[in-house]
Amino acid sequence: MNRIEINKVSKKFGSFQALNNVEFEVREGEVYGFIGPNGAGKSTTIRILLGIIQATSGHATIFGKDVWKDAVEIHRKVAYVPGDVHLWENLTGGEVIDTFLSLKGQLNKTKRDHLIDLFQLDPKKKAGTYSKGNRQKIALISAFASESELFILDEPTSGLDPLMEKVFQQCVEEVKKQGKSVLLSSHILSEVEKLCDRIGIIRKGEMIESGTLDDLRHLTRTNIRVETEKSASILGDVPGVHHLFLDKGVYSFQVDTERLSEVMKELSQLGIKSIESNPPTLEDLFMRHYHSEDQLNKG
C-alpha cells in the first residue's frame, strides 16, 4: 500500500502557480528523495501533505486518508521535521521534546533518552539559547522518538555537523528497516543518493523526473575516461558523445546511456589501453536539468 499518494495536485498563490499537477507516491518501507532548486515547490508540496495549506486542485492522501480533512488522524502516525526550527524561548529543549511527544500521545522515555544521547543534546538549556543545529536536533529527536509510520523531513540536516549528519542517516536507515516510510527533501545530494530508494525531481512546480536512481541514470549520460593506442578524436563526430576533452593522453567524455553500445564498438577499434566508466552521480543528473533549463532560456 502507498503511504503517500499525490494525484495532480496544483496550488496557486494569487496568480502565481506554485505547483502544477504534481504527482508521485511514497510506498511502504521506502525512502523517497524529493529534490529540486530553491523555490521549486518542495515545501509547498510538503505543507499540502501536512494539511496546513489547501491544494487548489487535485487530491493528496496519506494512509489513504484525505490530507486536509483527516489531518489530525493522519498526524498521529506522521512525524515532521522542518528545515528551520523555531522554538518557545522560555522552555528548555527537554520540555519542548516532551510537549511534542505527549501531544502525539507517545511519550516513550527510553527511546527519547537514547536519542538525546545519540544526538548529544543538552536538554536542560532554554530553547532560546540553542544554536540552529541544536534546534534542529530537538525536532529530529521529537520525530524519531515518536511511533510514526511516515516521516516527512524537509531539509532536516541543515545546520547539523557531519557527525550528527551520520547519526541522522543511521536513524533513517533504522526506521526504514522497521518498514516505515520517509519523504526526504534535501539539497545534500550525496545524502539523498545514499539513503533514498526512489527520487523525484521538481522544477518550477512540476515533477520532471521520478523513479529509482538507476531509472534516472538511464535518462542521462555515463562518464568515461579512456586511453587508446590510436587517436580517438574521431569520437567527436560519433552521435551521443558529448564534452570530449584530451588531457595528457587521456580522453574524457560523456555518452548518452542509450548510445553506449555503439560508442563502445567504435572505441574497441582504436585499441583500448585503459578504460574507466562512472555512472552519473545524482549531482550530474541534477545539474543536467539545470543546464537544459539554462540552454532553453538562452535559446
Binding site: 501536512l50 489531518a71 522542518p82 523555531h86 502525539k104 516527512i152
Partner: peptide
Amino acid sequence: EEGKLELLRSLPVGR
C-alpha cells in the same frame, strides 16, 4: 509567523 505553529500543526492537533 515564526513557524512554531507549523510544528504544532504537524502534530495530531486540530486546525
